[in-house]
């Protein structure tokens, strides 16, 4: 039984020309664990990225990256262009879900310690993709040039100033100049639609290439049921992706995301200006931080500490000792801490 489940009649002609039978049999040769949400997260993240690229390309048709027109052009997309509200809402919601599934993907990898040899490079490219994803989220949130976007740009770029060594450079870089101006918007747009997507494409192809070279091992559970990659795992992944799409559409259709008033530097930063949820832990820390810690400016200390933690995070595969459970514990502690901080920021 080489191709057990080919839709013989309608697709047969095409399948024959593509040589699908041999591809299917090769794919069927790999086996995957049947259980475990973790194994579907990578695929979901990739799928959401595709949705982001598609909806983002559509948005560039009407978006105008100029401080004088940006907000109006988004209003036009939402209010005037046919189905523009849907495209905008899908892009906006998928951004959140994309970052969420990136984080979850990384956490499950951490907890399962799937980054161990020979998967160090998969881990490193994955962490790079997380950084690029956060960069996409930051630059994307600036583009509507609403009051919220403006505040977001101010705070975000100001925090970057405290990054050790490269802070000053990063600060100017994120603002596209000395202050948050129209240039910041132009800069953010260029990064959002060209620079960062190109980087994502590059790193992601590396990430996926490594996956084909060194397929993820099944977890060392003796009684786990294994299934062939094709068709069984593919169909299950299909269920997950359709579910993700249905969730995105439901959120986009039923939960409104108001654009908010246009950015006006004369208006004081809104008191309830909350960052996107994935920056909530940062928000909580920034709000609670004292003026000085150990003789260092509060923000500088915290951002510095976060950078040290980040470096440790990157170097995880090289720090991890075989047989030790510290990494898994650290992952849980980190997750719980971030959740608590987020709750703190919301209250």
């Amino acid at each position: 039984m080489t191709a057990p489940d080919l839709p013989s009649k309608p697709g047969g002609w095409l399948a024959e020309r593509l040589g699908w039978a041999s591809i299917a049999s090769r794919l069927g040769g790999y086996s995957m664990s049947r259980r475990g949400f973790a194994f579907y997260l990578g695929g979901i993240t990739l799928f959401l990225l595709v949705v982001q690229v598609a909806s983002g390309i559509l948005l560039t048709l009407y978006y105008q990256p100029d401080a004088a027109y940006a907000h109006g052009s988004v209003e036009r997309i939402v209010g005037e262009v046919a189905y523009g509200d849907l495209v905008h809402a899908v892009h906006s919601w998928t951004a959140d879900l994309f970052v969420a599934s990136l984080f979850l993907h990384l956490f499950t990898v951490m907890i399962r310690r799937s980054f161990r040899s020979p998967h160090e490079l998969s881990w490193l490219t994955g962490v790079a993709l997380l950084a690029l994803g956060v960069g996409q989220a930051f630059t994307g949130a600036v583009l509507p040039w609403s009051e919220r976007a403006y505040t977001h740009a101010r705070i975000g770029s100001e925090l970057a100033r405290y990054v050790p060594l490269v802070g000053g450079w990063l600060h100017r870089f994120m603002r596209g100049g000395e202050d948050v101006t129209s240039s910041t918007l132009a800069h953010a747009f260029g990064f959002h639609v060209a620079v960062l997507p190109a980087a994502v494409a590059l790193v992601l192809s590396g990430h996926l290439f490594l996956l084909t070279r060194r397929p993820v091992q099944r977890p060392p559970q003796p009684n786990a049921e294994s299934i062939p990659l094709y068709p069984d795992f593919f169909v299950r992944q299909g269920v997950a992706l359709t579910g993700a799409m249905v969730i995105v559409l439901t959120l986009a259709i039923f939960v409104d995301r108001p654009l908010g008033p246009v950015a006006d530097p004369r208006v004081s930063s809104a008191p309830d200006a909350q960052p996107p949820w994935y920056f909530l832990p940062v928000h909580a820390i920034v709000r609670a931080a004292p003026k000085e810690l150990l003789g260092i400016e509060g923000p500088r200390f915290l951002v510095g500490a976060a950078c040290v933690m980040g470096l440790a995070f990157v170097a995880l595969p090289f720090l991890d000792r075989r047989g030790s459970r510290v990494t898994a514990w650290a992952a849980w502690v980190l997750l719980v801490t971030l959740l608590l901080l987020s709750l703190r920021a919301l209250s």
Binding site: L61, R76, V81, A82, Y83, G84, L86, V87, T242
Partner: peptide, 17 residues
């Protein structure tokens, strides 16, 4: 059918208001 339902809004979106 789902793909068609997804394509229709996209095609309509491409047409400027």
């Amino acid at each position: 059918a789902f793909a068609v339902a997804g394509t229709y809004p996209v095609v309509r979106y491409l047409e400027p208001p």
